[in-house]
Design a protein around this nucleic acid. Structure first.
Lengths: 243, 243
DNA sequence: GACCGATTCAAACAACTGTTTTAAACTTCC
DNA sequence: GGAAGTTTAAAACAGTTGTTTGAATCGGTC
């Protein structure tokens, strides 16, 4: 059982362990990552993980919590709510996500850990979804619901949100395949910018089509969730500005 | 070193191993899956994997090749080349992919193995990319290049292809998260159909915008971040070009 | 029945895993 | 300086991993 560290030196190795662990976990995932590899990169002893975090899972949980790092997410969220047009909001979101992917200074691997957790979930996923993903998701739903004139919880809105997120997440998930199919693409800053502009344009056009489709849908009356939304008066104007 | 199996009994255990391995690999991924677990489910001896497939990676490679479902892939490809409109081609592709995801008759775990391999690649990925993914990718590039009027190898074409694939793949990768964010969505056959229709419509609209953008790109040489332009629903071809 | 190659099996192997132990080194306060 | 408590270090532990071994079994042929 672990004792409580109290010294300042202790905090230093703790931080080194967290830093190294985020790298290794991002590369290999929880199971394939080894404590020895983490300690080797951190320059600490093999026993340090168990001393400071109890066990490997304790370290991973800490890394995952840190990976959910609300500061970037909150920065994106506040930037979106401060934006004036839908295009600007989407652009902020996409670039913010790519910054998290590429961010060479700080948390480049955080999102990768998150995505790997999504692909191969552990019990810790529920916490991350509630604390980090859901607020972002809800905000995206709001933005897009205003754009297409449907309820934030409607199927039409959610399908559009998934189309947006899917495009962004794809550049994380499919990286290995893309490097083989498209060797020239290295996802540097300039290319990331180009991709971001593409996704924003592509998505805006898709949203417009979804808007028309949902207008058609209202008279056809397919089987839909029994939610009675009636908000066509409010959010009809696109890019409903807010402060 | 493995000898060559020639008997009929041998083929039976080979098949049992492949069947069990596809399940275990889908659940745990290559690294976390254990040979002993696979052999236990297959009801074979621990040494059978090495005897029939050389080593664990050999078995995994075989499973991965089968998981990319060449027969489905070929069916999709021939259906696409027989289709008349871009919309029909996209629809065939998206529905074909979703059939692979949902395919209740055949192993539904195939695509999951593929996506897990993409997220956390092994040496076997290169083979699958060359043999299965690349042909499909090239065909999609052709279809979309014709639609947007750009070269199949151009960046504009590839970005659109990735937007399409990303939307589809998202419904595999984010399954665990979506079940928490959107509990009503179960990805049954009917909902899959709705998603497919959405993706086709969304993508067609996105392609149209990419077409306009690439046309603009040829004459405009302004570089600036897209701020709040006046955006009309159907034609916004004013993303600034780069370089 | 005896031979022979192909296949299966139980057991063991060497390497690696997370974890624990034990002692040394260090900090802090008297 | 010395004692107490905290942190690190090397080594060993018990368990699991993929793989190999060598004998046993099977199926067919002479």
């Amino acid at each position: 059982m672990p004792r409580r560290p109290k010294n300042e030196d202790s905090d230093a190795t703790r931080a080194k362990l967290l830093e190294a662990a985020s790298l290794v976990f991002a590369e290999l995932g929880f199971r394939a990552a080894t404590v020895r590899e983490i300690c080797a990169r951190a320059g600490t002893n093999v026993a340090s993980v168990n001393y400071h975090f109890g066990d490997k899972l304790g370290l991973y949980t800490e890394v995952l919590k840190d990976s959910s790092a609300p500061e970037v997410q909150n920065r994106i969220r506040s930037a979106i709510s401060g934006a004036s047009s839908t295009e600007e909001q989407l652009s902020i979101f996409v670039r913010g996500m790519f910054d998290k992917i590429l961010g060479s200074n700080r948390p480049a691997h955080r999102l990768k850990i998150m995505l790997q957790e999504m692909a191969n979930p552990t019990p810790a996923l529920a916490i991350v979804v509630d604390e980090v993903i859901r607020p972002q998701y809800n905000q995206l739903c709001k933005v897009i619901s205003l754009e297409i004139g449907m309820s934030p919880k409607s199927t039409a809105t959610r399908l559009c949100v998934h189309s947006l997120i899917g495009q962004v997440a794809h550049y994380m998930h499919a990286r290995a395949v893309m490097s083989q199919l498209w060797p020239q693409f290295q996802m540097d800053a300039e290319q990331a910018d180009e991709v971001a502009r593409h996704i924003v344009r592509f998505t805006l056009a898709g949203l417009a089509s979804a808007k028309f489709a949902s207008e058609d849908k209202k008279k056809v009356t397919r089987h839909e969730r029994p939610t009675n939304y009636r908000q066509s008066a409010e959010g009809q104007g696109k890019s409903a500005g807010k402060t």
